[in-house]
Simulated scan of single mutants.
Amino acid sequence: MISLDDAKAQLRVDFNDDDASIERYIAAAAAHLRRIGVDVDADPPSEDIDVAMLLLVGHFYGNREATTIGVSVEITPLGLDRLIAPHREHGI
């Protein structure tokens, strides 16, 4: 699981004003990955899952609104699916 400091380093945020929002984005990223069958609490932690979480946190932080006008919008950051694919639980 990534820390607030890890997320802030990824986001290049060196102030504390957005800490509560970033912590919510970390929790949301973890919850999303859990819902799709990824064990974000694996021991030892997986580096690619941590990177996937950082990508999601960056996406949530950079795209705070549900609607964006005048730009191309992607659903998830590039590479996210590839990072988590080996860690997803697949059912029949």
Score class of each variant (00 low, 15 high):
residue 1 M to A: 14
residue 2 I to S: 12
residue 2 I to T: 13
residue 2 I to P: 08
residue 4 L to M: 08
residue 4 L to A: 09
residue 4 L to G: 03
residue 5 D to C: 07
residue 5 D to M: 13
residue 8 K to G: 10
residue 8 K to V: 15
residue 8 K to L: 13
residue 9 A to L: 15
residue 10 Q to E: 15
residue 10 Q to F: 13
residue 10 Q to I: 00
residue 11 L to W: 11
residue 12 R to A: 11
residue 13 V to N: 10
residue 13 V to F: 07
residue 13 V to E: 15
residue 16 N to M: 08
residue 17 D to C: 01
residue 17 D to Y: 08
residue 18 D to C: 04
residue 19 D to T: 10
residue 19 D to R: 09
residue 24 R to E: 07
residue 24 R to M: 06
residue 25 Y to G: 00
residue 26 I to C: 00
residue 26 I to W: 00
residue 26 I to S: 00
residue 28 A to P: 00
residue 28 A to I: 05
residue 28 A to M: 08
residue 28 A to V: 06
residue 29 A to H: 06
residue 29 A to G: 09
residue 29 A to M: 07
residue 31 A to V: 03
residue 32 H to K: 15
residue 34 R to G: 00
residue 34 R to K: 15
residue 35 R to H: 10
residue 35 R to C: 08
residue 35 R to I: 02
residue 36 I to T: 14
residue 38 V to Y: 06
residue 38 V to W: 05
residue 38 V to R: 05
residue 39 D to F: 01
residue 40 V to A: 01
residue 41 D to F: 10
residue 42 A to E: 05
residue 43 D to H: 12
residue 45 P to N: 02
residue 46 S to E: 08
residue 47 E to Y: 11
residue 47 E to F: 11
residue 48 D to G: 01
residue 49 I to V: 15
residue 52 A to Q: 07
residue 52 A to I: 07
residue 53 M to W: 09
residue 53 M to N: 10
residue 54 L to C: 10
residue 54 L to N: 10
residue 57 V to W: 07
residue 58 G to M: 02
residue 58 G to W: 02
residue 59 H to M: 01
residue 60 F to E: 04
residue 62 G to V: 01
residue 62 G to W: 02
residue 63 N to Y: 06
residue 65 E to G: 09
residue 66 A to P: 05
residue 67 T to V: 11
residue 68 T to W: 03
residue 68 T to H: 13
residue 68 T to Q: 12
residue 69 I to M: 04
residue 70 G to S: 13
residue 71 V to G: 05
residue 72 S to Q: 14
residue 73 V to K: 08
residue 74 E to S: 10
residue 75 I to A: 12
residue 76 T to I: 07
residue 76 T to E: 04
residue 79 G to C: 04
residue 81 D to T: 03
residue 81 D to A: 08
residue 82 R to T: 02
residue 82 R to L: 04
residue 82 R to G: 12
residue 85 A to C: 04
residue 86 P to N: 06
residue 87 H to T: 04
residue 89 E to C: 11
residue 89 E to K: 14
residue 91 G to C: 03
residue 91 G to Q: 10
